[in-house]
Design a protein around this nucleic acid. Structure first.
Lengths: 192, 192
DNA sequence: GTCTATATTCAGATAGAC
DNA sequence: GTCTATCTGAATATAGAC
């Protein structure tokens, strides 16, 4: 083993362990309740190194809680609905730990809220151009809010009936919902 | 003024001010970031009295962040959908500060999560009995998750397109969504 | 009944030993 | 490059003065 690279590799290794531990703990407990000390313990190192490598708790969070940009959305309203539905399915299949870290913290930590809102605003802006024109902004916002609610209900709140359901059954039920919102279908008669 | 009752009234008055301030601050900042000191300052009293009247921060939170039981749900699937839609409309019209205090804290505070989950489980249990039978539990859970997502998107995250929309337009768009989920309609053809 | 002072705990951040 | 000790600040909760 080459000693020079060993040092650098060891450092990168430790840094990666810290980052992985931070992602998990931020996703489990949110920003405030996750301590630098706990991250260090989970990564089997010490708090001083965490600070040395990442500078501050805020910077560590910014590295750990990134909200993925998501696939580009295009085509007809129906195709846009299917794209957004596929994105939901992916978030249900395996736990998106980076996004969950941000979502877990977004209601009590301003930076996390800003990150989530920015990512959703970008997706909404992109989606709105491919939905039926009438009230497209509102319907794009509702598509985002609905997606967020399902992800929270499953992974974070673990609601009965949602936490154990197979992702395909959830997406199957949500398909008509997404198409409704993408097209802006007329509501059925309330007295039906 | 009767001095004996004045004392008791003064006490109830102060207690009510504390509770109102706590509701507002918990809804704005969540459990962890709301301090007894800030509540006392907002209620124009001092931290010692808050502790004396409510015992602990946890008990104050339990009194301030109560999740309303919601109207009973019944009738046909279509009627159940309309009931749930009306409940959503009410939560959009004026800010439900008690519920928002609980929702704001539910991702980072165990007791808040437990309260919200219990309230939602009760509503889901009740709703499931009135939805179309197939996969009723999952669809009841999705109705709750979707509702939660819209409330969070509007009041807590203030998503573009949602925060300023008139409640009637939101409920109008969500009507078909709720009826879809209540009935378990077959999904449209993905290639349409 | 109301407010002040303080004990205790614990977190983030820093300096420096090994 | 890695870890220890400590500084600083803030929060809950308590004891007790007015």
């Amino acid at each position: 083993m080459h000693p020079a690279t060993n040092r650098a590799q060891q450092r990168r290794n430790t840094e990666a362990r810290i980052l992985a531990a931070a992602e998990r703990l931020f996703a489990e407990s949110g920003y405030d309740r996750t301590t630098i000390r706990a991250v260090a313990a989970a990564a089997e190192t010490d708090p001083g190194l965490v600070m040395r490598y990442f500078g501050s708790k805020e910077e560590l969070f910014a590295r750990a809680a990134v909200v993925g940009a998501g696939e580009p959305i295009g085509g007809t309203p129906a195709e846009a609905a299917e794209s957004l539905l596929a994105a939901l399915g992916a978030k249900l299949e395996d736990e998106p730990v980076n996004a969950l870290a941000a979502i877990r913290s977004m209601l009590t930590h301003t930076e996390a809220a800003e990150g989530v809102r920015a990512a959703m605003a970008e997706q909404q802006r992109q989606a709105a151009g491919h939905l039926a024109a009438d009230e497209a902004d509102l319907r794009a916002g509702l598509l985002g809010a609905v997606t967020l609610g399902v992800v929270i209900g499953r992974h974070l709140l673990q609601l009965d009936g949602l936490k154990d359901a197979p992702p395909e059954r959830i997406t199957a039920l949500m398909r008509s919902v997404f198409h409704d919102l993408a097209h802006g279908r007329p509501e059925p008669d309330p007295t039906a």
